[in-house]
Design a protein around this nucleic acid. Structure first.
Ligand SMILES: [Mn+2]
Ligand SMILES: [Mn+2]
Ligand SMILES: [Mn+2]
Ligand SMILES: [Mn+2]
Lengths: 217, 217
DNA sequence: ATAAAAATTTAGGGCAGTCTAAAAATTTTT
DNA sequence: AAAAATTTTTAGACTGCCCTAAATTTTTAT
C-alpha cells in the first residue's frame, strides 16, 4: 500500500506538527529523517499527489485527515511493539525504540490487533507515551514538565520528552523510573536545577536539562 | 548489512538446493521469487561478488559456507516468528507464513534470541519444520511421507511438505493435525489413495496428493 | 526598499532492484 | 554433427529514494 519510507515521513510530519505551531518545514523534516532538504522536497510532492499532505511550495506542510490516520496507525504499531519488547522480552526502555522503528512497518492489521490483545490492551508505551486507538485517535494527556513544578509539590513521573538511549540510561542510573514519586524540595535560582526527594527516600539533584524532559503528574 | 532482497534470494537458494540434487538454476529461482530470469541473473552476479554463492555463468549456483550461514539465520528467524504468531497470538498454521516473511528481516540478533527464550526454545515451527540453531545448524530430521507407509502401520503426523494456506486449511477441515496418530488401513492400488484411521477413532480417505505432502513418524 | 541571508525547489545523476527484448550459450532433437 | 529449442545473460530502460549543485523564493537585515 504505502512504502516503508512514506510511512516514516508521515509519522515524522505528525511528530513535528505536534511539537510546534503552524506548518512543518522542509528543513526540520530533513533533519529528523536524516536526509537532505532536496530529498524531502521530492517526497513532499509525492505525498501531496497522494493527498496525504496539504502542501504549497515554500509554505510548509500539514497532514490531511487521511495522512494523519495513516501516521497514527504507524505510531500505534510502533508503541504496541515497544510494549511487547519491554514487557514480554525484557528489553530496557532505552533499547526498544530502534527495533520498533522496523517492526512498525509490518503490514498486517490483524497482527497488531492480536498483539494488542496479547499485551492486555496497554494504554501507554514504555516511555509513557499514549497508544492511539485502533480507529486512529490519539488519547489526550496533560502532563507538566518537572522543571515547571513548584517547590513542595509531590508528583509522579509519567513520561519522557527525550527518547535517546543516553538520556534513558541516565534516568536508570539515577533511579528516576516511570511511576516513581518525586517531591520538589528546592529550585536553584541560578541554573534552575532542582533538588528532589524520590519515593520518600533518597534526595537527588536534577539538572534543568533533565527536569525539562521529565513529564510528571 | 544485507538487504531484504538478498536475504530472500539466499533463503530461496537454500530451499531449492535442499529439494533437488546439483546446482540451483536461474529459472527455478525466478519462479520461486516471482521475478524474471534476467533479474535473477543480475542478483546472482551481485551475490557472487559478495562471496555468498558459487556461480559460474550458465552453470547454476550453490551457496558458499557464508551464504548458507546467512540463509539459515533467515530461516531461523522465520520459523521462530511463526511459532510466536501461532503459540502466543493464536494465529492458525495457515496464516503465519506470510507475516513471518516480513518479520524474518528484522535486523536484531538480540531480538530473535530473546524471542526464542520467551517461547521456551522451540524445536519445530507450526508446520513441523525444524528450527536451525543460533550457530546456524539445521537439525536433521528423517520423516517418511504418508504415501510411503505400509498397510497396518501406525504413524504420527510430524510435518507437511506443502505450505499453502489451501492445503493447511484442508488438513484442518479433515482433522489431520500435527501430532495426530494415523493407522494406514488400506492403499488403493488404482489411484494410490489411502484409507486411514485417525486417533483410533474415525476413518478417513486421503488422496495420494495429500498423502505425499504429509510427513509422518 | 534593497541587499544579503536563509530556506526551498529544481536539475541532473547514482544505486538497488525490477522489467522487456535481444544476444549468446547450452541442451535436446533430428 | 547440425539444427532447433531452451536456458541464461546482456542491453537498455524504468521506478523509488537518495544525493550535490544550481536556481528560485522567502525572510531578515541594513
Ligand atoms: Mn520506521
Ligand atoms: Mn516510545
Ligand atoms: Mn513459513
Ligand atoms: Mn522474506
Amino acid at each position: 500500500m504505502h512504502s516503508f519510507t512514506e510511512e516514516n515521513y508521515l509519522k515524522t510530519i505528525y511528530y513535528l506538527a505536534a511539537r510546534q505551531e503552524g506548518e512543518v518545514t522542509t528543513n526540520s523534516l530533513a533533519e529528523m529523517t536524516a536526509t537532505k532538504a532536496a530529498s524531502v522536497s521530492d517526497m513532499l510532492r509525492k505525498l501531496a499527489e497522494k493527498q496525504l499532505i496539504h502542501y504549497k511550495k515554500y509554505q510548509g506542510v500539514r497532514l490531511t485527515a487521511e495522512g494523519e490516520r495513516l501516521a497514527l496507525k504507524v505510531i500505534r504499531r510502533h508503541r504496541i511493539w515497544e510494549v511487547f519488547l519491554a514487557e514480554k522480552l525484557g528489553f530496557g526502555w532505552d533499547e526498544v525504540h530502534e527495533m520498533a522503528e522496523e517492526l512498525e512497518h509490518i503490514r498486517s492489521e490483524e497482527l497488531v490487533e492480536k498483539l494488542d490483545a496479547f499485551l492486555g490492551y496497554p494504554q501507554f508505551d514504555p516511555h509513557g507515551d499514549p497508544i492511539p486507538s485502533p480507529a486512529g485517535q490519539m488519547p489526550a494527556v496533560e502532563y507538566s514538565k518537572l522543571s515547571e513544578v513548584g517547590v513542595g509539590t509531590e508528583v509522579q513521573v509519567m513520561g519522557v520528552l527525550e527518547h535517546s538511549p543516553e538520556f534513558l540510561q541516565h534516568l536508570d542510573k539515577t533511579g528516576l523510573n516511570l511511576g516513581c514519586r518525586v517531591r520538589v524540595q528546592d529550585i536553584n535560582t541560578f541554573d534552575k536545577s532542582v533538588s528532589v526527594q524520590i519515593n520518600q527516600e533518597k534526595t537527588l539533584f536534577v539538572s534543568n536539562e533533565v527536569a525539562r524532559n521529565l513529564l510528571v503528574n
